[in-house]
Design a protein around this nucleic acid. Structure first.
Length: 661
DNA sequence: GTTAACGGTGTTTTT
DNA sequence: CACCGTTAAC
């Protein structure tokens, strides 16, 4: 691997299109197309590149692209894979449909690449009638589901029950494989049972599916209508799944159904990166793959191309502290030919704000002498910005971004926050979406209620009439109609904080809407995409998210949770808040399993870094810091403490932690 | 029917 | 501490 400095795209060589594969990767890529394949791939071993190359290999072997279904866990990962595949197959792109757009191409000409949910939504759209919905069904997000449960509880006069807990149970029920569902439902409290029944009825009545349905109802459909299942089995002859270690039981059932008795399934996973246990992911599914699929071919990738030796050793040191009773494939055997690199910096700050200041300062320092100017954020191409374009600040919880944003803002360092308050969850966007939803589907009570509550019953009627009288069905026209009829901008000025920013959000939405002619499709896309902010927190427009664009490509520091960062890599990574109670999170310290999942999070965070890794803490340093081998660490402190090491003593820690609050 | 103010509550991670 | 729901007043 050649040493690479800041490449413009921020990608390493092995991740680009058609690089030289190492022998193990080559073996994985060229494994028999119709046999099961398990790729056990540690962090930074080129796992996505290998999976992508395998898709390319299958196509070259004569598998029609439209027969390939590649499932990823995040939209971001899907976009990235899609981009790489499309670019390595110019002929695909240059066939009938337009090349650069990745949206809306017909399934016939390209592989399906997307999340389970995106895949499910697509199938449901086609067969909605079989499930008592019309193709124009809406997708309820978490918030909608929550409101619905709350409303049900209110109707039942059980207001004191916690909607969140009941919704959690409903979600767990929905994610139970169909065989076990009945037993699990019967075991629930009567209240949960009846809320569940009403909830399902409510969804159907309102022509809606919730997030879990996108998977659960497809599985149901497959059982109910074998002909439909056969159709998709016939279409998708080759299935590939990324992050297989994060599958839950229902996703597994779905996969099994789709694959049927064929064996053309390729999966990639790393047991050390299971971070969705809380969402029901079942590591057993990954571990039993070889037993599960007869004649499975297995390849282990253990050469890390991403990180320096110091970083890799530091991360391995941490993850080694996880002990499993099952025979897990450990990634601790990762090795690299990369340079030793700088030591990992452990920085002790005075507090959360001081930490943010320090991180921002470090990043600002990188910009000195690089042409960075204070107004550089208005000149996206200026050279200094490239120096930070492969820098990420990772944290455990979204709330942590606030302090960091403030510090970056003060220094005028461009940044971009991923996840967090979803674009589509913003009040102004939800208002518009509610209007669109109602206009598409007058049965949508939640939408109606939102409009009535936020405006007035009178205004709602005016709106309803307006929609009825203007049949232009384009999303753009309807948004416009809504904004004008409701006098929305004036309404915002009167009733909301920072109307300027909200206005820009609306412009962003309008811009996005321009690409769609069909309301249902537009709404579905929005609900699924949960698109990361196209605006950053101070309302400064960064640029609409181009298809296939990954964080590294932007001239801005990337801020995101560790969960979101899985699968990504950056030259420089700052992990903020490596503090007991934050990472591991206070709510995840109750059991060994939970702490181990937190430790895997720490591992994932550390292994995102290519060249420089900074672990920052305050108050009580995370126990995981004490697990980093000392000779890979360099301590810095604002507190005057001259630390050489952090010896973690469980009990003492416990005491100190408790005494802190 | 609508708005303003107050009090209580819950607070990880995501598709 | 921020968001919700309820209550009280208009």
């Amino acid at each position: 691997m050649v040493s690479k400095t800041f490449t413009k795209s921020g990608k390493t060589q092995e991740n680009q299109g058609s690089p030289a594969l190492n022998p193990d990767q080559e073996r994985a890529v060229r494994a028999a197309p119709d046999k099961p394949l398990l790729i056990v791939a540690g962090a930074g071993t080129g796992k996505t590149a290998t999976l992508t190359s395998r898709v390319a290999f299958l196509i070259k072997e004569g598998v029609p692209p439209a027969s390939i279904c590649a499932i990823t866990f995040t939209n971001k990962a899907a976009r990235e894979m899609e981009e790489r595949i499309v670019s390595s197959f110019k002929f695909l792109a240059s066939s009938e449909d337009e090349p650069p757009k990745t949206k809306n191409y017909p399934l016939k000409t390209r592989p399906f690449i997307g999340t389970f949910h995106a895949f499910g939504a697509r199938i449901l759209r086609r067969h909605a009638a079989l499930l008592g919905r019309t193709p124009g069904f809406v997708i309820f997000d978490d918030h909608d589901s929550f409101s619905l449960v709350k409303k049900i509880l209110k109707d039942m006069d059980r207001r004191k029950e916690s909607p969140a807990i009941i919704l959690g149970k409903i979600s767990a029920l929905k994610n139970t494989p169909s065989g076990d569902q009945k037993a699990k439902l019967d075991a629930e409290a009567p209240l949960v049972q009846s809320v569940f029944a009403r909830y399902e009825a409510g969804l159907e009545e309102q022509n809606a599916f919730d997030f879990d349905d996108l998977l659960a109802k497809v599985v149901l459909l497959f059982h109910k209508a074998p002909a439909v299942l056969d159709r998709y089995r016939a279409q998708f002859t080759h299935i590939l799944i990324d992050e297989y270690q994060d599958l839950n039981d229902l996703q597994y059932e779905f996969t099994r159904l789709l694959v049927g008795d064929r064996a053309s399934i390729s999966v990639v996973g790393d047991a050390e990166q299971t971070i969705y246990g809380w969402r029901g992911s079942n590591i057993e599914i990954f571990l039993r793959f070889p037993d599960d699929w007869a004649e499975a071919h297995m390849v282990t990738l253990d050469q890390n191309y991403r990180s320096t030796r110091h970083i890799l050793r530091a991360a391995s040191g941490v993850i080694q502290n996880n002990v499993y009773d099952t025979k897990v494939q450990r990634a601790t055997g990762l090795w690299t030919e990369n340079a030793e690199g700088k030591k990992v910096v452990a920085h002790e700050a005075l507090g959360e704000d001081a930490e943010a200041e320090w991180i921002a300062e470090q990043i600002g320092y990188r910009l000195q002498g690089t042409g960075y100017r204070k107004n550089a954020d208005t000149e996206p191409g200026s050279p200094g910005l490239e120096a930070i374009s492969s820098t990420a600040i990772l944290y455990r919880t979204n709330a942590q971004s606030r302090a960091l944003e403030q510090a970056l803002l003060r220094r005028r360092i461009p940044y971009r926050v991923y996840g967090g308050l979803k674009f589509y969850e913003r009040r102004e966007i939800k208002d518009i979406v509610a209007a669109l939803r109602y206009s598409l589907n007058p049965k949508d009570q939640l939408a109606q209620e939102r409009l009535e509550k936020n405006f007035s019953k009178r205004m709602f009627r005016t709106l309803a009439d307006a929609f009825a009288n203007h049949p232009d069905p384009s999303p753009l026209a309807r948004i416009d109609l809504f904004l004008k009829t409701a006098g929305y901008f004036e309404y915002m000025e009167r009733n909301m904080t920072n109307p300027r920013e909200r206005r820009e959000n609306i412009e962003e939405l309008v811009h996005f809407a321009a690409g769609y002619k069909d309301i249902a499709e537009f709404l579905g896309e929005i609900a699924l995409l949960q698109s990361t902010d196209n605006l950053n927190a101070n309302g400064r427009r960064i640029r609409a998210e181009a298809p296939g664009q990954t964080p590294q490509e932007e001239h801005a520091v990337s801020l995101m949770t560790i969960h979101l960062a899985k699968g990504l890599e950056f030259d420089r990574v700052f992990v903020a808040g490596v503090v007991e109670g934050v990472l591991p999170h206070a709510r995840s310290m109750g059991s060994v399993d939970e702490v181990q999942e937190e430790r895997r999070l720490m591992y994932v965070a550390m292994t995102r870094a290519r060249k420089e890794l900074y672990l920052s803490f305050y108050e009580l340093p995370s126990r995981f810091l004490g697990e980093v081998p000392e000779d890979t660490l360099e301590f810095q402190s604002e507190t005057g403490t001259d630390r050489k090491s952090l010896d973690y003593d469980g009990e003492e820690y416990e005491e100190r932690y408790i005494s802190l609050d």
